[in-house]
Write a protein that binds this DNA or RNA. Structure first.
Lengths: 103, 103
DNA sequence: GTTGGATATGTCGGATTTGATATATATTGA
DNA sequence: TCAATATATATCAAATCCGACATATCCAAC
């Protein structure tokens, strides 16, 4: 269940949640989707740290920038799933780790 | 292993594969990434058909258009992972189905 | 407390993805 | 066959995401 408190917190963090006129169904999809992205970003940070890479080093590996890596790991709403998954693939994240993420 | 034949086929279909100057590593990530997207698009089509929805009906469910659904299912390179995953979540695709996709 | 490396935050122009629209091509059923 | 319905393909302006850069904040080691 998506309670009001949680929705407010996400909106403060910059996420756009659909308004009340949207289908409840869609809201559920949106919140699941956000949960997936946040889980991936946490996995990414943990994995980078495990491999003892700085954000700058890792940014080089994916031809990106330190600031974008920071945003990825912070769960910034303006980061695509595409970039997160490419990043995890680059770090050879084991399948078992990715599997558990989807709701 | 990513052989030349397969790479040519993907490029004919509109995918941009990195050229030979890129790291081999990155090429591997790119081809895995493409494989993930293609697998998701196939699952999406199968699931929509299972639920006996037309592309137009389904487009309405995700506030998109019939043509974009067609592109999703065709594995068009200009479709994001974000949209594919949101679509699968909307159709309540079981976790087991998504799990198997990641390499 | 100062220095230096790592991470976070804000902004921007350019690139990519978007829904919409038009239209062509299949596919289905009478 | 022939209409009606479903799907594929092409194009476009608007929205979103991108890497890059500047700068701020954090956090050890000295």
């Amino acid at each position: 269940m998506m309670d009001i408190q949680k929705q407010k917190k996400l909106e403060e963090a910059g996420w756009k949640i659909g308004n009340a006129e949207d289908f409840l169904e869609l809201n559920q999809v949106e919140s699941s989707f956000i949960a997936v992205k946040i889980a991936l970003s946490q996995h990414l940070k943990a994995r980078r740290q495990l491999l003892r890479l700085t954000q700058k080093e890792f940014a080089g590996m994916i031809h990106s920038s330190q600031s974008r890596v920071a945003k990825m790991e912070a769960g910034d709403p303006g980061v695509s799933l595409d970039l997160l998954v490419k990043s995890l693939l680059t770090l050879k994240t084991p399948q078992e780790d990715i599997e558990k993420i989807f709701p």
